[in-house]
């Protein structure tokens, strides 16, 4: 049982990274195939939408994987391959949205919110500390008299 565990783990790990890529689609050159894999992970399968074309079993995903490999073999750069698909399917085909004026709010919004929140928290905290630092007003004569009376009045 103990001895079988490492073997089982090794098998599990070996099985994990195999996407939907079929052996017949693969490029003979491992470096190019590696590039195709990296690209495939960044491209959305439009049928299943939340899967990359590398993960998806859909027919269209297969066609797109083949196209990515064709473009790579034709000597296209990674950017050119992505551009090829964006021209046909729009930015939606990229799993990571591009950084353009139209998407500034998307990329920068969270950071702006965080900066705003930190600034607001600091102001509130500072104000509270300034209030706390002020010494309370000294007792009036009337208050002092009442306090003395209370202290003198020993119930025991």
């Amino acid at each position: 049982m103990r001895r079988a565990l490492p073997l089982a783990l090794a098998l599990l790990l070996a099985a994990a990274p195999a996407g939907a890529v079929n052996p017949d689609e693969m490029l003979p050159d491992p470096a190019l195939e590696h590039r195709a894999r990296e690209l495939g992970r960044e491209l959305r399968c439009l049928v299943c939408q939340n899967q990359s074309i590398d993960d998806s079993d859909a027919d269209l995903a297969r066609d797109l994987r083949v196209i990515v490999r064709e473009r790579i073999q034709a000597g296209d750069s990674d950017g050119a391959v992505k551009q090829y698909l964006v021209e046909r399917y729009g930015d939606f085909v990229l799993l990571k949205p591009p950084f353009r004026p139209g998407t500034w709010a998307l990329w920068l919004g969270p950071f702006l919110l965080l900066i705003g929140a930190v600034a607001a928290a600091r102001t509130v905290y500072r104000r509270r500390r300034a209030e706390g630092a002020q010494a309370p007003a000294p007792l009036s004569a009337e208050e002092r008299r009442r306090l003395d009376a209370l202290l003198r009045d020993d119930p025991s």
Partner: peptide, 13 residues
């Protein structure tokens, strides 16, 4: 037949 023209047109289903 091979759906290549469809991909040029941005067909996904």
């Amino acid at each position: 037949n091979d759906g290549r023209t469809a991909i040029d047109w941005g067909v996904y289903g």
